[in-house]
Amino acid sequence: MKSHYSDPTTSQIVERRVLCVLVDNEPGVLARIAGLFSGRGYNIESLTVSETEHEKHLSRITIVTSGTPNVLNQIEAQLDRMVPVHRVVNLAAKASIERELALVKVSQNGPDRSEHRMEALRLATAFGAKTVDATLNSFIFELAGPADDVERFINLMTAIGLVEVSRTGAAAIGRGAEPM
């Protein structure tokens, strides 16, 4: 028997959604947003935040989340009713640009060292990554790009000496002349 709380929407497909949230940059606002997600059991895949309009103290939060369409609509409504939230915009995948930044450290030791170093540099060039630090046995690459590219780059580096990764969540913006 289906439970009393069973949600007829659970048969719906889980989708990914990118939300841009414009908030007052007041103390605790990030805890408020994060608390909404944890308190109501929503997913956060990534969250990026920074003050974008200093004179108005406005911060822009980009949240990548996933859920069924009903849950995603509910997330938007719950965000929108929060007191410090000015706007919530759902960025449609095809009409927006998403970028992540990764700092990738690779280190080469052992017999294949020089071959691996060459390969690392070749891959970095192929992906358009910048070399931001180098020593005789290591590189740090900086790669900005769509999440998929960053993911593939990191996976390739794993085979040739990946030791550490620092990466941001997505920053996203709608295409075209119109602001959000």
């Binding site: 007829p8 929407t9 009903n70 609509n73 509910q74 409504a77 719950q78 929108d80 009713r81």
Partner: peptide, 11 residues
């Protein structure tokens, strides 16, 4: 009056 109440539990 609360938009988040609409379609929350029942469509």
């Amino acid at each position: 009056i609360d938009p988040s109440s609409i379609n929350k539990n029942v469509k």
